[in-house]
Simulated assay, not measured.
Amino acid sequence: MSRRPRTVFRPLDGLLLLDKRAGVSSNQALQRVRHLFRAAKGGHTGSLDPLATGLLPICFGEATKIAGLLLGARKAYRTTAVLGVTTDTDDADGQPLREREVPTVDDAAIEAALAPLRGAIVQRAPIYSALKQGGEPLYAKARRGEAIEAPEREVMVHALDLLERQGPRLTLEVECGSGTYVRSLVRDLGESLGCGAHVEVLRRLWVDPFRAPRMYTLEQLQGIVETGGEPALDDCLLPIEAGLAEFPSVQLDAPQAVRFGRGNPAQPEAGPAGPIELVAVYEREGRVLGLGQLDAAGMVHPRRLFTWATQLPGS
């Protein structure tokens, strides 16, 4: 029996906008893509449920240094909620817990149930979630049958709108901040309507700053590498700068870029006035050097450097 050849990894920097398919975890999707690109280092920017599809930004190499920023970004989803059935996972992958009759509701009644779920709300996370309790994910405890008190936390729901109704199925669009569980929104909507509900379909549409993302499925990427080889595959990557497009930025001339790359405060030649907690720092040629903090005196202090910032001529 022949073994698959062992992947020889390579240094690779950039961002991939993956269209995750249903049925795989975010980590499984990451590992498959990482092996396809032969990227030595990779990470994703916030888990999508196995049931979910859509945008999962993948960071390779130095781009992993901004993964946390993308994780905290604003996001949008489209979901199909099924009224009348609750499950232990709050989605269709779980076991049914209770079935109730779906009342006759009109759009006005649904809007009245949606309204309290908008804005800054306190939300209880699903029992089956990646949130950790005592250093262990809640889903691991739930699978062992342990009694769990899922935590509550404040989240931001910028928009929550009904798009379509077909029998017990409601199509909703959600725009929210970091840490919001669409499964919890659907669960709470169902309880407000008196019949319970669970997520049947979930798709992430965008993540800031990628509002109109060009996404690639794993199958598309495999086809690209088979027909065009690795150079064609690498053309699917976005530069790290694309992930920082919405951050305030400052520009350094060559001597100040060297200072910044050595870990010292530097004087920008262009950019906004401080103080600003986090800015993207660029050299004149347009390449990002790292992230910094801009003080009231106009000096930018290094917070996180990309490798090439420490290797500039004159460093």
Rank of each mutant, 00 (worst) to 15 (best):
A266L: 10
P50L: 08
R165Y: 03
L69I: 15
V300F: 04
T307H: 13
T53V: 02
G298M: 11
L312N: 09
L189E: 00
R32C: 03
L172W: 00
F60V: 00
R6V: 14
T89D: 04
L289G: 00
Q251T: 15
M299T: 14
P313G: 11
V186M: 01
E152K: 14
V33Q: 05
A125L: 12
E226Q: 12
D19Q: 10
V105C: 12
P239F: 05
V102R: 01
L56F: 02
P57S: 10
C176T: 09
L71H: 12
T227W: 01
G263H: 10
D188E: 14
S25W: 04
L55P: 03
A67Y: 06
I127T: 13
V105T: 13
K65R: 14
S25R: 04
L71P: 04
E173A: 15
V82S: 05
Q256G: 06
S184K: 06
E154N: 01
S178G: 08
Q256E: 15
R98C: 14
F9R: 13
G23K: 11
E191Y: 07
R169S: 11
G84W: 00
L305N: 09
H158V: 05
T180M: 09
G145E: 10
L83F: 01
Y282N: 01
L48F: 06
A112G: 05
D88T: 02
L221F: 07
G314L: 13
R100M: 10
H198N: 04
Y181I: 04
V300N: 03
L51Y: 06
A254C: 07
A212N: 13
E136I: 15
K132L: 13
A108N: 07
Q251A: 08
T53S: 14
A270Q: 12
E101M: 12
